[in-house]
């Protein structure tokens, strides 16, 4: 009984995790400039990782694998903002200024 509940919960988590990973990928391809692409990538990096790894964790149950998965998740969540920040800073230093009033702003230009 408890096993089925965990199974269903992990399926739901995995499905939504796969979806959010996919949405982030589509966004990274569709968005018009670097900084907006980073927003899309952050969907896969935070929500996608949380959902997929938690879903797998529920499948693993209380084993060593769950602890390892939790360590991987914690590591990803701590490092991905750091990497994004380094990337954004480097891009800004190289003269890649984020536009407030660029072509990406169609809804504002009207």
């Amino acid at each position: 009984m408890m096993g089925t509940v965990f199974d269903i919960a992990s399926w739901v988590l995995l499905t939504f995790g796969g979806l959010s990973v996919l949405i982030g990928g589509i966004g990274a391809l569709r968005m018009p400039d670097l900084f907006t692409r980073m927003h899309a990538a952050s969907v896969t990096d935070s929500l996608g990782a949380i959902l997929v790894l938690t879903g797998v964790m529920l499948q693993a149950g209380l084993t060593l694998a769950t602890i390892k998965l939790a360590a991987i998740l914690l590591f990803l969540l701590l490092t991905s903002p750091t990497a994004s920040n380094a990337l954004a800073t480097a891009a800004m230093l190289a003269g890649n200024k984020p536009g407030i009033d660029t072509t990406s702003n169609r809804s504002d230009a009207q």
Binding site: F35, S42, S80, T89
Partner: peptide, 10 residues
């Protein structure tokens, strides 16, 4: 940065 839609630049 972790919340999608907002990003710390500097």
């Amino acid at each position: 940065t972790l919340t999608p839609g907002t990003l710390t630049l500097d």
